[in-house]
């Protein structure tokens, strides 16, 4: 394959699109899992336990995700570098016609999301940022994900930082979803506006789904002990 030595611009676009879609798949799955918080501690903690017992499959998923993240970031870096080089002298007066804020800030939103993912992993997966909240166990002696989440989001700073990062993630998705269709060649005259709209709606749904959790916790709709007090 010609793209083995030096990937062509179109192969790079395709890599961005494909890895982006893999990550999008993860984001959707992750959201569905997260939403179990509304079903109470048993549901969420049980789900966490199931995940842990997946064993090898979990590792496969992790490796795929990690590879996707790695390829997504490396390709993006190469794209940004090449694109900067492609216009060494900027315009004195620059205007745009139909590009969006989301499209123009993909690199920035991507970087913020990356920083956020690292923090998020340290927070909930490696449990190093808030150890006093994240090593609790539930009645069955399993890791109490539910209370970890609830206690975390009762903190306004954590809450705000999550909402901020999610805003950028969904902007990133908004441009990324429609772009993936274009870059992978699925677009045509008829579908172009549909993909655009779909990208917008899907990313909005995901956004609302994710931020509903910290908001619900912070406003007390979800409580540490369901039905009880704080």
């Amino acid at each position: 394959m010609t793209c083995v030595q030096k990937p062509s611009s179109i192969v790079k676009k395709a890599v961005m699109g494909l890895t982006g879609l893999v990550l999008f798949g993860f984001i959707v799955g992750h959201l569905i899992g997260n939403l179990l918080i509304y079903a109470g501690p048993e549901a969420l903690n049980g789900y966490a336990l199931t995940l842990r017992h997946l064993g090898e499959l979990l590792w496969v998923a992790r490796i795929v995700l990690l590879a996707a993240v790695g390829a997504h970031i490396l390709t993006a870096m190469s794209l940004v570098r090449e694109n900067r080089r492609a216009r060494p002298t900027p315009y004195q007066f620059q205007d745009t016609i139909q590009t969006t804020y989301a499209a123009r800030t993909m690199a920035v939103s991507g970087l913020v999301v990356l920083a956020y993912i690292i923090y998020h992993l340290l927070h909930f997966t490696f449990r190093v940022t808030n150890p006093h909240l994240s090593h609790l166990t539930d009645a069955n002696g399993h890791h109490d994900v539910y209370r970890m989440v609830v206690f975390s989001f009762q903190n306004p700073w954590i809450c705000a930082s999550y909402i901020f990062a999610l805003t950028l993630l969904c902007m990133h998705l908004n441009h990324g979803l429609a772009s993936a269709a274009q870059s992978l060649g699925a677009n045509n005259q008829k579908w172009e506006p549909r993909f655009k709209k779909a990208g917008c709606i899907i990313s909005l749904i995901i956004y609302l789904g994710y931020i509903s959790i910290p908001i619900a916790i912070y406003t007390g709709i979800i409580k540490a002990v369901p039905g009880g007090h704080l």
């Binding site: 062509s8 794209l79 090449e82 694109n83 080089r85 016609i97 590009t99 499209a103 429609a178």
Partner: peptide, 18 residues
């Protein structure tokens, strides 16, 4: 054509549609 385009130092498409 794509190879030549890349060799000529044009940038990459990031779907701004400008």
């Amino acid at each position: 054509m794509v190879r030549t385009m890349d060799e000529e130092n044009f940038g990459n498409c990031t779907n701004h549609f400008e």
